[in-house]
Design a protein around this nucleic acid. Structure first.
Lengths: 306, 306
DNA sequence: ATTATACATAAACAAAACCTTATGATAAAC
DNA sequence: GTTTATCATAAGGTTTTGTTTATGTATAAT
């Protein structure tokens, strides 16, 4: 059976008017054109849909069924058009986002604002580590990723959109905590609690030490930023973390930023996508949004500025 | 927007395989044919549905929406086909019947049997008087009508399918009730309770009297067969009614059939339709069914035979 | 009986849809 | 680098679809 939407449309008009001529007028067709469409439809289902008794037309039982079908199909088509139109205009849609766990905090703030502007957008946010993020990009399982500087050679397209100041923190009772200036020599003597191999923060810190010809004593590594901060709180060592993750700890005074020579290290947060990926309309808007709004928004953060 | 079922079908296959070549094989098409269908569909909605990244295909957000739509639309089409097939094979359908109120009783028996054979058929039964029946036929508001002999000049097609014996009944205590033979002369002296003008039973009785040169004393006329029988029970007069309506009264012995010369008058029940009406499959089957089965079935009736 | 109205049918034509083969481009696998 | 797999594009031709005009037929109204 091979119906066409056209046949259904014509049939629906005829079934409504019960009059070929008027249906033809409505559809801006000639009367025979309507006759033929109906005839073809009847051939498809090989059973009469309309019967003519005297001058009047009646729908047969199957005709009534077909009328229901035609109407529901056409309604569905309208719904589809509506949905697509909304998606195009970004009134609706779905945004699949993944962020580095260290970026979680401020990305949520960004999202909260964004969601207010586009209330019908739904969002999935995957918070995970750097290597999983790269995996997600490779499998094309998300629209955009927010992370530190992405590695070369992955066919990625990225744009920095926010400064990411890395600072050294310690337990407030640490002996360096109250010093006005901490020199690099003093820093070198300390043990550090760091993220796992592959972490952007870790490699940035490592690079800093290497560039200044210092050894970097990593006493412990952990895969979770919260755990690192907790370790520092407990006095297991110093930690080098993004200021953006410190809001609560600074407020609660469980950690203190050390005023170390050469710190903060300014790195950037990047919004990353697969090279050549055609972003969905909503993803494109979000991409532009964060590049434009992020800095602006950070002014409202209750965290130290440098 | 003017999609085609073909586009949807091809798109669905592609969205399932995420591979044009395999989809083409499934559809017994060349690969470019598939490419073109997808391209046209994308042009219709003027937004990409599929994106190719490297060698892999992915559905865009709108593509996912379209996949849902395609599937549901195709499912609906299958449902429609199924429904139509069932209607054709009479596994399903609706039968609109109207019967003369005097035929009500035995028609219900017929229907009960018929419904057992075609359990998914639904039936409307309109029980009404003769003139309403003719009106229903004229307006094409029912498939078949069961009534006495239909009048000429209404463009009707009819077939007799069951004898309708008319008998004279009275209160059991009536002085004629116990006579072995009642002559026409004796009958002529009696008063009768009859149906309204236009009733088939009434005109049959009238004809009988006229043919035998007798006067027909109609003391009272009523529009309801039950009322007539009740009047006879109460001794208001004799009544001429179809045996088929007497089952209960005979069993309860509230009425008695008089053994009158020339009675019963044999008339027929007819199944009637508009001339030229193409019956629905189920109506056609019912029509044939009652013509074939009615006599047979009456053998099981617990009523007198002649 | 005549006329008006409405659907059916036929013929002819135009447009479009659709498919195939051949070829090109790109990316992944070897 | 070469090969292989996969999709895109182009060209060509066939089929199908969709129209229109003209005409036929049946019904209902006058």
């Amino acid at each position: 059976m091979n119906l066409t939407f056209r046949q259904l449309k014509v049939f629906e008009a005829v079934s409504r008017h019960l009059n070929y001529t008027n249906a033809a007028k409505e559809l801006h067709l000639s009367q025979p054109a309507v006759s033929m469409q109906i005839k073809q439809l009847e051939e498809q289902v090989s059973i009469p849909l309309i019967e003519k008794m005297g001058k009047k037309l009646y729908l047969t039982e199957v005709g009534l069924e077909m009328q229901d079908y035609a109407r529901s199909t056409m309604q569905q088509l309208l719904d589809l058009e509506e949905t697509i139109a909304q998606m195009k205009s970004m009134k609706r849609g779905h945004l699949k986002l993944a962020v580095a766990s260290t970026a979680n905090h401020f990305v949520i703030r960004l999202l909260a604002r964004f969601a207010k502007v586009y209330p019908k957008i739904s969002i999935s946010l995957d918070v995970t580590n750097r290597s999983s993020l790269l995996e997600l990009l490779k499998k094309n399982e998300c629209d955009l990723v927010i992370m530190g500087r992405p590695p070369e050679g992955y066919n990625l397209q990225s744009a920095p959109f926010l400064e990411n100041p890395l600072v050294v923190v310690s337990n407030p009772h640490h002996y360096l905590a109250d010093k006005e200036h901490v020199s690099l020599e003093e820093l070198e003597k300390e043990d550090f609690v760091v993220r796992e191999q592959g972490s952007g923060t870790r490699s940035a810190a490592k690079r800093f030490f290497t560039e200044h010809n210092l050894t970097f004593k990593t006493k412990m590594d952990m895969s979770n930023n919260r755990a690192i901060k907790h370790a520092a709180e407990e006095g297991l060592g110093l930690a080098i973390v993004s200021v953006h993750t410190l809001e609560i700890e600074l407020k609660a005074k469980t950690l203190k930023i050390l005023n170390v020579e050469g710190f903060p290290i300014f790195r950037n947060w990047y919004v990353v996508q697969r090279e050549g990926k055609r972003l969905s309309p909503i993803a494109k808007v979000f991409n532009d949004y964060i590049i434009q709004e992020a800095d602006n928004m950070m002014l409202n953060f209750d965290i130290p500025h440098f």
